[in-house]
Computed example of a mutant assay.
Amino acid sequence: MTDKPCKVCNFTRQQTHGLVAISIDELKKKGRQCLGFNSSDSVTVVLENDGTVVEDQAYFLCLPSNTKFMLLNDKEKWSPPFDGGTAWMARDSVILETDTVDSSSTVAPWYELAQQLKQDLTTIILMSEADLQTLVDAPCPELASALGFQEKKAQELQETLQRVLDRREQERQSKELLQLYLKTVEQENKQQEETSQPSQGDGTEVDSASGFMSRTLMVLKGKTSPETRLSTEDLQMVVARGMGAMEQVLGWDRARTSALLQACEAELTTRLQQIQAVQSIRSNTQLRGSQQSSKRRKVEGVEKQAQGSN
């Protein structure tokens, strides 16, 4: 666990202090010291903005840095600020001595942040962009005095904080630009997919009248020997459908369609002849193998008979 930067105030909200605590118990201990409670006083920790009681350590650790807590003793109750911050008057009896009133209520917002940095400079990592901007906008001489720095060093700190803010803004813009680019690419890809999908207008959909598949139509409309690119099954389908179906689907003139159909018939005939030739060769090979096996069996029989007679 690491120390968590926190803010604590009393129920009047007239005293506010910044501190770091690792647990609820340490927050109570340091809060008593800052707010002037006795070490033996029983106090309750609540969230300053809505009065939620904070008792669980895990819940405490989940709260963001610089959360403002309020410490209450047994007689004090949380109340929202109203009427210019006069909620403290809801207490049964309040006695405020003039020398105990903390002047932090009139302190500029950057002063509390400067006090946090003075105690631990690493708390700057946990500050929000709003807090960093508050420090950047603070008067340099006064900030230097609050931090105990020379004015030049305070100025360098403000310049560094401004660079941090600029870098975060650039990162934010780069992220938004990247998201916009990815969205644009996604839309372009989607449009390309839609335009590349087959439609009835270009004759690449399945035509229920002719029974041609879209792939077959795309091949038939090829420029160079489309019949050689079709499978034997597709060629059989084209030849079976005939001239009328091809004219209807392809939208070509009769001469061009007839030439393509003849090319498909010739290609189909050639392939069937090749298939028949291969089947014939296979049959002859199987027949010769069978004859050779028969001859071997006869020779083996003769040899056995000869051995038996001897």
Rank of each mutant, 00 (worst) to 15 (best):
M1S: 10
T2Y: 04
D3W: 06
C9H: 00
T16V: 12
A21K: 11
I24N: 08
K28V: 05
Q33L: 09
C34T: 06
N38R: 09
D41M: 04
S42M: 04
T44N: 13
V45T: 12
V46G: 00
L47G: 06
A58L: 08
Y59S: 09
F60C: 01
P64R: 15
N66V: 06
T67Q: 10
T67S: 11
E76S: 02
E76N: 03
K77N: 10
G84T: 03
G85A: 09
T86E: 13
T86K: 12
R91V: 11
S93A: 15
I95A: 15
L96D: 15
T100M: 10
S103L: 07
T106E: 02
A114T: 10
Q116D: 11
L121C: 05
I125C: 09
I125P: 01
L126R: 14
D131L: 03
A138M: 09
P141E: 11
E142K: 13
S145P: 00
L147N: 13
F149I: 13
Q150T: 10
E159C: 01
E159D: 06
L161E: 00
L177F: 05
L178R: 14
Y181V: 02
Y181Q: 12
V185K: 07
E188T: 05
K190H: 08
Q191V: 06
Q191T: 07
P198M: 07
T204I: 03
A209E: 14
R215N: 14
R215M: 15
E227A: 12
T228C: 05
L230M: 10
S231H: 05
S231P: 03
T232I: 06
L235W: 01
G242A: 05
G244E: 07
V249S: 08
C264M: 07
E265W: 02
L272E: 14
Q274I: 07
Q274S: 15
S280I: 00
S283Y: 00
T285F: 03
T285P: 02
Q291V: 08
R296W: 00
E303K: 12
K304P: 01
K304Y: 08
Q307W: 13
